[in-house]
């Protein structure tokens, strides 16, 4: 009985696309290595004072966003989703709200005369 659902899943997976929605060891390993590299880059750049000011902010944010994308693709398999892509749509909707909250808060508080 424990074999049954697993067996039919496996067969279905091999039938039309071998790694749909499952991922392979290789893709997890690539994702892991990319994440490590994207963590080491900002660490070295900031702690060794290779970049400063705005350039440092750009390096930090770009590597963080890249690592977010790596996790979404290689670990959460967002690109292997069947159409209609409801997972992607809800994610984009959520990100729009998060960016509005964060950017809106920063914007209004830096222009708020009472807070200073």
């Amino acid at each position: 009985m424990a074999q049954q659902p697993n067996g039919s899943h496996g067969a279905g997976g091999h039938g039309h696309s071998s790694h749909k929605g499952h991922g392979s060891f290789k893709s997890y390993l690539i994702g892991f290595l990319l994440s490590i590299v994207l963590t080491i880059i900002p660490l070295v750049a900031i702690l060794k004072d290779l970049v400063e000011g705005t350039a440092a902010l750009v390096v930090l944010l770009v590597t963080a966003v890249l690592q977010f994308i790596v996790q979404l693709l290689f670990f959460m398999h967002l690109n292997e989703e069947d159409k209609p892509r409801y997972n992607l749509m809800t994610l984009i909707f959520g990100l729009v709200i998060v960016l509005t909250i964060v950017a809106g808060s920063i914007w209004i508080m830096t222009n708020n005369a009472v807070a200073h």
């Binding site: 697993n6 899943h9 997976g13 499952h22 997890y28 892991f32 670990f75």
Partner: peptide
């Protein structure tokens, strides 16, 4: 990464 390996073992 290891939680991903858990899913691979399951599959």
């Amino acid at each position: 990464f290891t939680s991903g390996l858990a899913v691979l073992s399951m599959n």
